[in-house]
Design a protein around this nucleic acid. Sequence first.
DNA 1: GCTCTCCTTTATGCATGCAAAATTAAGCGA
DNA 2: TCGCTTAATTTTGCATGCATAAAGGAGAGC
Lengths: 230, 230
Amino acid sequence: MIQLDASDSPDSRTLHDRLVAGIRDIILQGDLPESIRIPEAQLCAQFQVSRTPLREALKALASEGLVTLRPNRGAIVTPLDATLLSEIFEAKQAIEQFIGMHAAIRADVADLTALEDLHCALQQVAHRGDYATYTLLNSQFHDRLAASAQNKQIQKIYSKLQVQIRRARLVINQNPTRMQESALEHEGIMAALRIRAPLDLADRLVRHNKATAEAFMSKVQADRKRPVRI
Amino acid sequence: MIQLDASDSPDSRTLHDRLVAGIRDIILQGDLPESIRIPEAQLCAQFQVSRTPLREALKALASEGLVTLRPNRGAIVTPLDATLLSEIFEAKQAIEQFIGMHAAIRADVADLTALEDLHCALQQVAHRGDYATYTLLNSQFHDRLAASAQNKQIQKIYSKLQVQIRRARLVINQNPTRMQESALEHEGIMAALRIRAPLDLADRLVRHNKATAEAFMSKVQADRKRPVRI
DNA sequence: GCTCTCCTTTATGCATGCAAAATTAAGCGA
DNA sequence: TCGCTTAATTTTGCATGCATAAAGGAGAGC
């Protein structure tokens, strides 16, 4: 998981934080079908808390955009449609541009070594064809790159956009060849980062994002026709 | 105020929405000093509600970044320091770039006429030297421009960044000559928009943002030394 | 006079309870 | 059998209450 605030202690100090993180994880694992009422009572039982803190957590997640509150009709996991997804990729492009321009200049030694390590692992995993691990490491790689831009606001925005995309992965069957392409693009990204080339890095990140977006969007129409889950 | 969701009805249907908007406004008006405990009880009395919905609203605002929750020690209005502000301006630059590139292409006739109207009003107000009205209209102008880019995600991100900057205006004495400069830059922005020149519009927006940021940041050190308020 | 400790007061965090709205089920007529 | 009306059930939204942690203050010790 992404560590944005230093306030995020090992067991997430407050009940509120634990609930927000917990429900977010449940949604990201796809264990809460979208578009249907989130069972407040069930979650209360699951987390062993009363409705008050649970509802507070849901309001916070709503403010994040992950759930939608329908007055008097409960909360639902915000449905992901093609429009929303394409807007998210578009917004992410703007952020990636920024990350490229600034990470190339601001990344410190710790960032660079961490990124090299992740990159190395990614290439091996891509070679093995382990898609699940690739997705995980890929997330970590891009989060670290976002952090290298040294702007907490951007990091937060990026993280929220990534959450939605991670959620989309649940319902979209990924094209396996995309992983190989992605790994190739990552070589270019690392090359640009190593020589600290802002324009090149930004350009490669934007193109990487576009390629991922296209791979996603081409599958959206096909996959979303089928029943979403359960 | 900014209308992001169509769900924002005149009196903001739900109590929750009204509370979030209401507290946000109070903070934006500077009626809640930052860094000291937000008086839960007082707000309850003010809005005539019990602590439960009020606390839910505070959690939502915390998720927005406007307030900070300190476990067992109440909520405070997130303090604005120079670092945070400069990060916000930097992030806004990334968003402005996007807005420029896309608004130039996607703005429809309604957008263009609305922007022309706002622009016209802005120029008059700048000429009169009415700073308060200028700030208000300027906000509306940029919000509308953000909307013209036709991407709800960007619009939301932009709006949240703007909120923080609007808050900063409360504690920073603005340089009056900056308004005149700003009005001039707006002429260029409108010119680029009229001929639908994406690169030029983006460039002008970014430079406009940078100039505003510099005007702000130069005042931050000086002004923030003094007592913040009350 | 200063600091540390203990006690009082206040505020927070969460559970519970109750009224209103929505959902579901049942009954009725066509 | 299907659709509509109405009653029963569930769920939501908010208020209230209670246990606990923090803040404030008084008094003892140095």
